[in-house]
Simulated assay, not measured.
Amino acid sequence: MTETASAPERAVRADASGVVHTPAGAAARIVSLVPSITELLFDLGLGDQIVGRTAFCVHPVPQVKAVRSVGGTKALNWDKLNAARATHVIVNIDETPKELADALSAAGYTVVVTHPVEVTDNIALFRLMGALFGRAAEAEALVDAFNRALAALSDAAHAWHSRSVLYLIWREPWMTISRDTYIARMLALVNWLSVPATTGVRYPVIDLDEALLAAADLVLFSSEPFPFGDRHVAAFGEAFPRHAAKARLIDAEMVSWYGSRVLKGLPYLAAFATPTALAAGTDR
C-alpha cells in the first residue's frame, strides 16, 4: 500500500499484513531479520534497542557488529533468538518464509511484517517504524529527505533513455525479477523496464538464451543475492559475444534495499543510468 508524504501521523499503524500494532517505544527489544530494515533502525536512532540481526545485516559499520546474529533471513538459531529476549521481530514477505513468521508469532513474539513494492512505500515504512518505536520525528526527517531525493531524480527525467533491462540475481539456475518487485520499480524511475515483460512469479528462473538477450538493451549483474563480479561479466561476454557490450555490474544494495538506503540509492541510480556512465561501463 502506497502512502504519500501528506498522510497524517497516527499513533497506531498496520503493517504489510494488515496487523495493527500498538506503539512500544523504548520498551521494545527488536530483532530484525531484514538487512535493509536493520540499517533503517540504526538511522532512526534505535541502535540500543536492536538485540538481534541476521548474518546478512552488514550496515551500518561498525555499529551493526555489536549486535548478536541470530541466524539467516530464512533460518534462525532459536536458542540465540530466545536469549535475546526480544519483544518484536521484523520480517519481510519476500525474504522471510511464511512458516517462519507464523512460528515466531506462535512463540509469542510481536511480528512486524514489511513489504515495500513501490519506491514511495518507503514513506509508510519510515512512519511505521517511527510510530512503533517512538521515533516519529526521526521518521519524518527521513520522509523529507526521501521526497527531496525523489524530486531531484524526477527533475532529471529528460536524461533517462527508455531501455529494456535484464536484471540478474542468481546463476545455476539463472534468475531475474518481475516488474512487480521493488527493484523493478526502482529501475522504472529512470525509464528502465525489466524483461521478460510478464512472468508468473516475482523472481523467475529463466533461460539465458538469444531470444531473451535480444530483447534486452542492458544486462545487469547484481552484487546480491548472488555476488556477481567481473569474472562473471567476462564469462558472459565469451558465451554471448553479440551481447557482451550490454553487460554491467550494479550495486544491488542501492536498488534493492528499501528503507534509509534509498536516500543513497536514488542518486546512485541517477548517476548509473546516465549515458556517460553507461558508455564507461561503470557500476559506481
Rank of each mutant, 00 (worst) to 15 (best):
G259Y: 03
T181R: 01
E238M: 08
V201P: 04
R163T: 00
F240Y: 15
A215D: 15
A159Q: 13
A270N: 10
P204K: 09
V255C: 09
M254K: 13
L212K: 09
V233H: 07
R202K: 11
A211Q: 13
A270W: 05
A239K: 14
T198Q: 15
H232K: 01
A215G: 13
V190Y: 11
A156F: 04
A157Q: 12
Y258T: 07
A270D: 11
V233K: 14
I206L: 11
R231P: 01
P267R: 14
R185P: 06
Y182T: 00
L187H: 06
W160M: 06
V190C: 12
A157K: 12
T181D: 00
S222V: 06
H161W: 00
M175H: 07
F226R: 08
I206T: 09
P227E: 12
S162D: 14
T199C: 06
A211N: 10
V233A: 15
F226I: 05
M175R: 15
A188R: 15
I206W: 09
R242G: 09
I183E: 01
L263R: 05
E172R: 12
D207R: 13
A188Y: 03
P267H: 14
A239E: 11
D209R: 12
R179C: 03
S222I: 04
A215K: 15
A245Q: 04
M175Q: 15
V262D: 01
E238H: 08
V201S: 13
F236S: 07
G237N: 04
I177N: 11
A184I: 05
V165D: 00
